[in-house]
Design a protein around this nucleic acid. Structure first.
Lengths: 258, 258
DNA sequence: CGTGGCTTTGAATTACATCAAACCTTGTGG
DNA sequence: CCACAAGGTTTGATGTAATTCAAAGCCACG
């Protein structure tokens, strides 16, 4: 990575784009929430869910809008109802590392010292449930399972972070892209609907530049590497935002470094 | 990272080496434990600490001994009493990513699905407190603060993991080494004894090859880059395992990418 | 004092970055 | 409806930071 590499910031206005996504959930009531089972909310049973209902507020943001910035006070935590957010850290000269994409059902708000250690920006239309951290944590006493669940989420994220360190530190460009596509396929399966049919086109909601910043590459290398995977018959690129995995096992071998 | 790069595994016998470390704590009793305040044990007060004493077992391992491997059942969790452990993941061809070094006072055992997602190997003589995960978690009911503390630890680790992703994905070799030395200086300060006097030589207990695998570089690049930092007057290399930060502010600027 | 493992240094190579330009798509305004 | 402007994506030519290959120091230890 050359240090004088620089990136465009995301200035100007959010502009809606028609990236196909999971249908937008508009969820007035926790009790009727379709994705409740996939979030920490599931630890509260039907009679208890009003506790959450009382402190939740729904929010909606557009692509390129920033939910919070690195260093901001982490007063709130969120569940993603629909859409995609990117989490990232910046260096002073604009180099960017995306530390994660988060999707429907994901939790956002693990934060150590009361401030966010990364920024969060919408990559599509996003709707979220916002909770005051303070009020949520107050429920820990009455509902200890809530805290267990958060510990479980943190633990899973830590495991994913370690995988990503292996990817960033030791994988080649092809291996990075193969790993990325496979995890995207896994994650893009509708919440809980078992595995994504691997022969279906995968929606790729983020830009090439976002992918590059997630994998520690440049846009050009991402594009070139995808083209190569296409030429070798591992994937089919319908358009920039729809990719089919043609040979899943072969791609897995690449991803794992065989 | 070229995929055909290969690393020596750590075969053969552990061999004790005289790397200067924090003095080995031999701690028969939790109540008298010197580093208790710096571990999760501190959430149990004097009257309660016997709960831990009852389930703890002290363990000692030598350099190159492996505490557990990726994929092993994560039945136990540990606190490091003294020494240094390295945590790593491997690719099939031997490429290795060290995801963390852990030192005196650190907790080891955040694991998602019941199995370890990384291997843990001693980098020096190491003594640890071993707890049965099951028995420790049983204490959660009676001492909820225990779980809070573990959540706090997980959260801190996640923040560190994100910093490391930025380093691996977007920093140059010099920036990586500068960041590494600074975090080592911070961490090598005796437990809780405020900040390490930055003008003191930092003990560097791990090998160049370990540093390389931690920073996503090769041994040669680590060595060359350290030599360059030495030539530019940023650091003084007393010997391979003792480095002084001569110009802390300048080094910080490098580390942060200015 | 010689052997083996680590570390350092040098020369050649390469995977990926940078620079540059053409190509799409999508939205806008005449 | 079409021209065109603006971003994003792809492809090509060139450059370079870091790797690879090679070999010489340097300790520590038997």
């Amino acid at each position: 990575m050359a240090k004088y590499m620089h990136f465009k910031s995301s200035p100007g206005l959010p502009r809606a784009r028609s990236i196909p996504l999971a249908p937008h959930a508009i969820m007035p009531l926790c009790a009727a929430c379709e994705i409740r089972e996939f979030t920490f909310c599931s630890v509260l049973r039907d009679g208890e869910i009003e506790r959450l209902q009382a402190i939740v507020r729904q929010v909606r943001i557009s692509p390129r809008q920033i939910l919070f910035r690195e260093g901001d006070d982490a007063d709130n935590v969120y569940n993603i109802l629909s859409g995609v957010l990117k989490l990232y850290k910046l260096l002073p000269d604009g180099r960017r590392q995306i530390t994660g994409f988060i999707y429907q059902g994901d939790y956002l708000g693990i934060a150590s010292i009361g401030t966010h250690s990364f920024s969060a920006e919408a990559a599509s239309e996003v709707s979220l449930c916002r909770f005051s951290r303070r009020k949520l944590y107050q429920l820990f006493d009455r509902y200890p399972a809530l805290q267990s669940r958060l510990l479980g989420i943190a633990t899973d994220e830590l495991t994913a972070a370690q995988d990503q360190m292996l990817l960033l530190g030791r994988k080649t460009a092809s291996e990075k892209l193969a790993s990325f596509l496979l995890s995207l396929a896994r994650r893009m399966a509708p919440c809980g609907a078992g595995n994504h049919d691997i022969t279906e086109p995968i929606p790729v909601p983020m830009s090439r530049s976002d992918i590059a910043d997630y994998l520690g590459l440049t846009v050009e290398t991402v594009s070139r590497t995808l083209s190569r995977l296409k030429k070798t018959g591992h994937i089919v690129i319908a358009d920039a935002h729809h990719i089919t995995i043609a040979r899943p096992d072969a791609l897995r071998d690449i991803a794992e470094g065989f």
